[in-house]
Computed example of a mutant assay.
Amino acid sequence: MTGNDSSISQVAQSGLVVTVPEAEPAVRAWRDRLDPSVPSGMPAHVTVLFPFLPESRFDGDTLAAIADVIGRHKAFEARFEGCGRFPGVLYLAPEPAAPFRALTEAVVDRWPETPPFGGQFAEIVPHLTIAQGQDDTILDEAEAGLRDGLPIVTRVASVDLMVHDGSRWRQRASFALG
């Protein structure tokens, strides 16, 4: 989850993510060094929506509503063949990006009080963060080091609800795509 992940240590924050375990062999060493969300337990992922609802809102009805929204979308395959950048950030860009955007838009349509990254950015850019808060020299090094591990292919079949307990991210629930 990029958009100032280093400050996401508040208790009860949540996010919806697509974990990408297939990426771990290629990205883990870089993320361990360069992504501040790793020490708090966030796996390699593409963010669907962050921040999402506070943990106190996750009752049975809300979890059922999330499952309904996510379940309306079909499972799909995504490939990560290259990198992209935001200022100080290196990420892997998923193709196709449209299904990730559609998931984000559907969740925001249902919970409009939860704009992606708090409304900081005008465009939804699906991405798997490798490094953040780094200068271009470090990002160049990481990007060069990732090339041999690409492409990465994953089947996106679920979205995980992650909740921060004050020190670590933990999976609260997982929702299957249709």
Rank of each mutant, 00 (worst) to 15 (best):
R168I: 02
E123F: 10
V107S: 01
T154W: 01
I152S: 00
T137D: 15
A173T: 05
D136I: 11
P126M: 05
D68I: 00
L139Q: 11
R147G: 02
F100A: 10
P115V: 03
R168E: 11
Q134I: 04
P112G: 06
G84Q: 04
I138E: 13
I70T: 03
D68T: 13
Y91A: 13
Q132G: 11
P115A: 04
T154G: 02
P94H: 06
A98W: 04
D109P: 00
R172P: 00
D109H: 07
E95A: 14
V156A: 08
E113D: 15
L161Y: 02
V153P: 00
A98R: 15
A144E: 14
V69H: 02
V153L: 03
I66Q: 01
E113A: 15
E113K: 10
D165L: 06
P96N: 09
R170L: 10
L161E: 04
D61S: 15
F76T: 06
F121R: 11
G133H: 08
Y91Q: 04
H164Q: 03
F100W: 12
T129K: 05
A78G: 05
P94V: 07
G166W: 05
G71D: 04
G133C: 06
C83I: 06
K74Y: 00
F100L: 11
V153W: 00
A75W: 04
P151V: 06
V159Y: 03
L128C: 05
L128D: 01
P96A: 07
P112E: 05
H164W: 04
I130V: 15
V108K: 00
R72G: 12
I130K: 02
P87I: 07
G71A: 07
T137Y: 10
T154C: 12
V69Q: 02
H164L: 07
G71Q: 05
R79W: 00
K74Q: 15
D135T: 08
P115H: 06
G60C: 10
A67R: 12
A106T: 05
K74C: 09
G145F: 02
D61C: 12
Q171I: 11
L139F: 10
V69C: 01
G149S: 05
G133N: 10
P94Y: 05
D109I: 00
A157L: 06
R110C: 09
A65Q: 14
G119V: 09
G118R: 12
P99F: 13
L92S: 03
Q132M: 14
D165H: 07
R110Q: 14
F86P: 03
D135H: 14
P112N: 06
F117V: 15
V107A: 02
Q171G: 07
G166D: 10
